[in-house]
Nucleic acid binder design. Structure first.
Lengths: 258, 258
DNA sequence: CAGTGGTCTAGACCACTTC
DNA sequence: AAGTGGTCTAGACCACTGT
């Protein structure tokens, strides 16, 4: 009988300020209840049927809202038993990984890079044992120094699989750094980051012009394309000047890139 | 007239192996085209109307697929001009931040912690100038050493706002470390992480039993609840033994927690 | 078995944006 | 003005799952 009496708030017949769509309002309402601890982890969320009546809308609309809440990790949906507030024991942070050039430019500093080293080789022992690359694969190894305002900003040690990116062999990387070049030529990949702190060794210290043994923030990235390893890169940032920032919000979507 | 002729592949009338739902198959198909560079950034994606005919389904189903692709950052949707493949210049990684206790236990090591220091105070100069806390607010400052297998694993330096979490003042944290306690008592928050590498100072070195000046991975976390700062925490991990890992996949959703 | 979510349809109206 | 996505409806059938 579509009782409208329980309509949560009163912008229903309101002509002004009706910015959000209905399913978004449902999302906000439920988020609010969870945030305010009115609904605690494990508590049951009204069934789609119940919400359909509460909001006087169709089930699709409610379903869309609950599906999004589940996708953003706020609730768990199960058949028969219904949806419940999820326990939030681990939080996820969204870390945006930029191209180093963009990163520098976002600080309003002039950017340039130099290729310090370039050679074609096969995987080392370490590389074959650990993660991605096949034995005897043709690889291109590059060392790139990124500079901001002519000061060392990041030392990039990259290995590219030439079977995944054959064009790389004949590319000078004179106008486009390898990272950006790959972004333009090899499209999307899945991958993995490892972030750690290390003491700089002699080579890194020299190139980054930091004291030997000083703290370096190391971001390692492995990327695949359709199951094939494409590139492995170690980005060495002087620890004192650099930091990664990540927002975490279990609320209203994950804002993937925007 | 719902032409079925162009149905992309042939599991339509197939009774076996019909695992994925239709909108998921549409998502996969489009992802595939983008991954294979058949559709490059900027290229136009068929309109909802066109896809509706291609797949012989209703517009809602196509819309659901495209909406998800847009939410995961793969495509851009615009009215009138239609949807296009998005340029992928920045990638986002999902970083799971666990409670330190869970982190240790996931390594199958016995876990314990000790509260090294505890005092109630007001914000320091630095704290009032920089980010969250109001002046003269009551704060609880804690230093917690987390141990794995009785070896120092992480040094936690935490400040809790007593206006946001008044119960904390009378809590001994004997059975539950402050981080886990807050998770249970203050519900969800939005927040921010800053990850950097630093050289350990005397205090940190001593507590973590590492050489002074060695590389430390520092994770700073600021959390708010409804706009009010709740807690600020610095987690100091010996850099050599610890690393954060994050997966990035611009493909098929962001798997927020799972 | 009955309750719940998962998915889909075949329409509809509107808002926005470019032409 | 026309094309596109944004949203919503009022049904429907099915799959899963706990009792």
């Amino acid at each position: 009988m579509t009782s409208m009496d329980t309509t949560p708030d009163s912008d229903r017949g309101d002509t002004s300020g009706n910015r959000a769509s209905l399913h978004q309002r449902i999302i906000r309402d439920i988020e609010q209840r969870i945030l305010s601890t009115e609904w605690m982890p494990g508590d049951r969320i009204p069934s789609e049927q119940a919400l359909t009546e509460q909001y006087g809308c169709s089930r699709m609309t409610v379903n869309k809202a609950l599906t999004q809440l589940a996708q953003s990790g706020l609730i768990l949906r199960r058949r028969k038993t219904g949806s419940v507030v999820k326990r939030q024991d681990t939080r996820t942070a969204i870390l945006a990984i930029y191209d180093v050039a963009d990163e520098v430019k976002s600080h309003d500093l002039p950017y340039r890079y130099t290729i310090c080293e370039r050679l074609q080789r096969h995987p080392t022992m370490q590389e074959t044992t650990c993660p991605g690359f096949r034995e005897k694969e043709d690889l291109l190894a590059l060392t790139v120094l990124h500079l901001a305002d002519d000061e060392p900003f990041c030392l990039e040690e990259r290995v590219i699989s030439l079977s995944a990116a054959p064009d790389a062999a004949n590319e000078s990387f004179a106008n486009l750094a390898p990272g950006a070049w790959l972004l333009n030529h090899v499209a999307w990949t899945t991958g993995e980051h490892r972030i750690s702190a290390e003491s700089s060794n002699a080579r890194v210290s020299k190139l980054l012009k930091v004291a030997k043994g000083s703290a370096i923030l190391v971001v390692q990235r492995l990327t695949w394309r359709q199951g094939e390893p494409v590139t492995r890169v170690r980005l060495n940032y002087p620890g004192h000047q650099h930091r990664l920032t990540a927002d975490f919000t279990p609320i209203q979507g994950l804002r993937p890139t925007s």
